[in-house]
Design a protein around this nucleic acid. Structure first.
Lengths: 212, 212, 212, 212
DNA sequence: GATGAATGAGGTTTCATTCAT
DNA sequence: GATGAATGAAACCTCATTCAT
């Protein structure tokens, strides 16, 4: 017999704590695979190994589940990026590279990037989701990048004419890279070497904006 | 401009002949606006000014309607491109420019480009549509471009190492341009100047492959 | 062969026109029998001899169906009463009797009175329905009665101190009578002779308010 | 006031004993507010400050909980009335007044009267509840009143032709008074002065049946 | 050809009830 | 005793498709 106090976490309790993550993982898989409207909650539940009703213990409805997936997979990453920027002490070029590569590691290069494609495809049909996404992802994501540029300018490490435009220039190819990854089921194009693309891209951008 | 079907068709008969076109136009609008699954046939019918039942007189089901839209808006354009290539007498660089600009005029720059995005977003959920699209659009479209390159090589106007890869290199930015146009509802980026992009693109490509 | 023009209404067309009435009748039956929440639309449809989906061709949802039932069974009666009052030429005491008996004939004495009970029981749970009912039934119904009293006063046939209070005094026993009819399933009281009750009631009231 | 179960029960044990009462109070509140079907057991449990599972330790299911509420709020009052009648030594007119006022104090004038309305509204949908209510409330309640009348007749204090009918005559206005209290959310009538109504009613009835 | 009424499978959501801890 | 996570039947509502007229 083992000492019953404290050490032994009951199997079931562990599952309970893990439930939300299991559900989010299953939902991410299916949302990415089928889109928002075509994903059936029963399938999400089954893939997570629970019943339909259980899903509703954790998420009030389909939209809330989707928001939770977005938060878990993207918003969190943006939050971390914000923290990195806030706490960074070094050179701004390094910081920009770190942010771009971090994004690829956490979002662009993972299943989460499928969410980006999904939103593009279905946002028209679900205005509430579009509003949520715009506020939590587009606005916040844009702000992080802008803040890095501003930091560089303030420290005289960057030289950019217009922060807003420059931010868009940074975002566009990232988006492209993401779409590329997800749009080639029916296109049948070869894969892009994302790492090399990112490296080249960072180099080009920094070449263009670094102060000297 | 489309040549009239027959010179002596009475006016009301033209009306009847126009039915399919009106249906296709309505369907294109709605498919592009809402996607395949989210488009309701009743809405298509209403927009075309007919009843739901009438739609089924012309198209056996939703998928057939979609295929007809694709044929009408994209496959026809590809067919015309094939004809142009087959009948072309001039220099291959000119031909390539004509094909690229023709694509923009007929597809990329029109509502039809929304179909491209739609297929990327929903092909997973409708394997039959994906197969159709691959066969009628991807394969044939790729073949046209390849044939231009082959023609250039054969006439010693182009110098390309690998036809297949070069074709992909041609297609990729076209696709990007298309997606850009349709994916920025939620991205909120500014518009791209497509004409200039195309011109630059054509110049770059031709600069890279032209024999001298 | 019969002349095909005009005269021969096709069987099916007749059914179509009759559909709403059949649905309303079925819905009234079930709403009265089971209450609003406990009535399943599938049962309504089945009782009307159609499928679930058909019901939605005529009524957008459960609440709209209920409103239609109320309109068909009660609001219409109130409207007719309004017309009677507006067009009446005779003595006000006669008019008041006509209104009270008309109400019993059209509502109180019919299945429609079950709606009154239903609203009392469930209005708390369905605020939209309560608002609708208050506006279309309570307010309008009260107004008709008040208008009769006002008419009598204006023509010096009635003598009432306060129109509003007197209207309530008229309504209360009517409501009681209605509830009595519907509340005795579980109460097992004997039936009340409604006609006699109404006669006595009208006599008493008129005795109390008639000018001389 | 309720006599404590046992003199030496420790305080926390009293807490435990109080559980059922807390549950019954919460259930009464919600049943009266929303009706039987629309009341969610989770809400009952939460209002009583326990978990949903705990509720099932005390009551096997929703119907049993409802029966317990009826027993606690109405049947007990009837039982007490039975005891009063059985032990009464005085004049029967006094006894009848005591019974009627006792009913108002314990049931008609309290939340419990909402149960009466609820049963009228939903008994159709829950035959078991209807049977229970009929047996425990209608029959027993009727019997108490009948027994008072019989006592009066036996002691030559009352003079009634038909016990059964007279009992109904007694019950009817009591019921009306109850419904009045609960049915006027949507009716918007002013309140009735219940005490005065009861006094008058008792006087009228006694005037009618008292032997001299 | 044209209509539009009718269908019914399929999706989301709710909630009484159970049971491992 | 107490908990609350889990279940799954059932209800509302949608829409592609059919078919009598």
């Amino acid at each position: 017999m083992v000492a019953p106090t404290g050490a032994k976490a009951p199997r079931w309790e562990r599952r309970k704590d893990a439930r939300p993550q299991e559900l989010l993982a299953a939902a991410l898989d299916l949302f990415v695979e089928r889109g928002f409207a075509a994903t059936r909650l029963e399938d999400v539940a089954r893939r997570a190994g629970v019943s339909k009703g259980t899903l509703y213990l954790y998420y009030a409805n389909k939209e809330e589940l989707f928001k939770a997936v977005v938060r878990d997979s993207i918003v969190t990453a943006i939050g971390d990026a914000e923290d990195v920027v806030a706490g960074y002490e070094g050179e701004s070029g390094e910081l920009l590279r770190a942010i771009l590569f971090g994004w690829w590691e956490r979002v662009g290069g993972t299943k989460a990037s499928g969410i980006v494609k999904l939103v593009m495809a279905e946002a028209n049909n679900f205005p509430d989701l579009a509003a949520f996404y715009r506020k939590e992802v587009i606005v916040r994501g844009t702000r992080v990048l802008s803040s890095v540029l501003e930091r560089g300018v303030a420290r005289k490490e960057f030289r950019v004419a217009d922060i807003e435009t420059s931010t868009q220039v940074l975002i566009a190819p990232m988006l492209m890279l993401t779409l590329w990854k997800h749009s080639c089921g029916p296109c049948d194009q070869g894969d892009v070497d994302a790492e090399r693309f990112l490296s080249n891209f960072a180099a080009m951008v920094l070449g263009g904006i670094q102060a000297d």
